[in-house]
Structures are given as C-alpha cells and as structure tokens.
Simulated scan of single mutants.
Amino acid sequence: MPEVIFNGPAGRIEGRYQPAKKRGAPLAIILHPHPQFGGTMNNQIVYNLFYTFVNRGFSALRFNFRGVGRSQGQFDHGAGELSDAAAALDWMQALNPEAKSCWITGVSFGAWIGMQLLMRRPEIEGFLSIAAMANRYDFSFLAPCPSSGLFVHGSEDRVAPVKEVMAVIEKVKTQKGIQIEHAVVEGANHFFDGRVDQLMEQVGVYLDRKVGPEILKSEQEKA
C-alpha cells in the first residue's frame, strides 16, 4: 500500500492509497475522526474500512486532515477539512479518469465532513457514516440527501447518542428515491472499543448487498 503526498488547499496532504486492479473501478475515500482528539488516518476503524473497500475492488484512499501527521496546515473547525476532502477526491479522479462513481465514508467528525462533501459532489453515489455526531454538528443540510447510504452507531455511545442520530435519519428517510439505512452495534461505545469486528460485519453486509457481489464477480471472472 503506497504512501502518497498530494497538494491540498493548506499545503501537502499525507495519505495511503491502494489502486484497484480493474480499470474504471469505483473510488472510496475514508475520513478520520476529530483531529484535536487523536483522530488520524491510522484510526483502527478507518484502517479496517479502507481494506473493506480495497477487498471489494475499489480504489481506496485514507488521508490525514490538515495539521495531522505529515499533512500541512492547521485545524480549521471543519471548513478547511471539507476542502481537504474535496482535494482528495479531485486527486483520486485525476488518477482514475475512467471511474464513474465514488463512495464517501467518515468516522465521527469525519462523518460530518463526508456528508457535506456528498452534498457538493454528484458523483458520490453512496456513503457510510460511522458514529455521526448529530448532537454536536448540524446535519440539517441533508434535506434532501442526494445519495443512499448507511448510518452505524453504537448502542452505548455517550458522545453521540443513538436517539440524536435517529432524529437525523428519520428526517432524511422521507426524501424521495433515497434509501437511508441504519444499524446499531449492541454494546459499542463511540469508539467501538472491543466491537470493531461487529461494526465491520454490519458494514460488510451492507456493502455486499449494494456493490460487493458485482465487483467481486468481475474480479473472479478476470482471474
């Protein structure tokens, strides 16, 4: 898995990128938790999500927001981080001009950034929002939400309680033609301590149903 450095609005951005074997494969970008509370691209959930997409034939990228690791710049309370995510998608599209679609995935703070990017980029066809902090960040911009996706949260999340996330999901669900699904990992806290395997199982079931069989079949036929 190659280390990559690409240009962002605040300077260089550090990432890890795994290209797909198949030309025209979809793209996936995974956004990490809050930079000021230890969030990096090496977060265990981000790491596992990255390989979940790689194993399904996606070209996948995870990266450090500005001011994290070797990424230049300083924390910008979300606005700059959204620009970083947009620059990451631009960079991936330049490398993969035949890719027709993209999935965006975010964890905690990254979920908020990811959903904002979703609203701005019509090529994003699916999303995963893990432990979205609907109680701390405004998600009202998701009306209407342009793409279907999955919210996952822990039943014991005290940072972003399930009921707050459910209020957002129920509102978005009403939008015509959009399927918003949700899953709860029993016993999991905000960081899914000791429950990452259960989280990835929920994500895997959803992706297998949405994209997995088609991509995996094409890879098997190619082999």
Rank of each mutant, 00 (worst) to 15 (best):
P2E: 11
A10K: 13
E14F: 00
E14G: 10
R16Y: 03
P19A: 15
K22F: 02
R23P: 12
A25G: 08
L31W: 01
H32G: 03
F37L: 13
G38C: 14
N43G: 06
Q44S: 02
I45L: 13
I45A: 06
F50I: 07
L61S: 09
N64V: 13
G67K: 05
V68Q: 08
G69H: 06
S71G: 01
Q74E: 12
D76W: 00
G78F: 00
A79I: 08
A79G: 05
G80S: 07
D84F: 04
D84P: 11
A85L: 01
A85C: 03
A85G: 08
A87C: 10
L89K: 02
W91D: 04
L95V: 06
L95R: 14
P97T: 09
W103A: 14
I104N: 07
G106N: 01
V107G: 01
G110L: 06
W112T: 09
W112Y: 03
I113Y: 05
G114R: 08
G114V: 15
G114S: 10
M115N: 10
Q116V: 14
R121V: 13
R121S: 14
P122I: 05
E123I: 12
I124H: 04
G126W: 04
L128Q: 06
S129D: 10
I130L: 01
M133T: 15
M133C: 15
Y137I: 12
P146E: 07
S147T: 13
G149I: 13
L150Q: 09
L150C: 08
F151Q: 05
H153Y: 04
H153E: 08
H153V: 12
G154K: 02
S155T: 10
V159T: 15
V159P: 02
A160I: 04
A160L: 02
A160V: 05
K163V: 13
E164L: 04
V165W: 00
A167P: 03
A167V: 09
I169L: 03
K173L: 08
K173G: 13
T174A: 13
Q175F: 09
K176N: 08
G177Q: 11
I178H: 06
Q179N: 14
E181H: 03
H182I: 00
E186Y: 05
G187K: 03
H190W: 02
G194F: 03
G194L: 04
R195F: 12
D197M: 07
Q198A: 04
E201S: 14
E201K: 12
Q202S: 05
V203Y: 00
G204F: 02
V205H: 11
Y206M: 12
Y206A: 05
E214F: 13
I215S: 06
K217R: 12
S218Y: 01
E219V: 08
K222Q: 14
A223R: 10
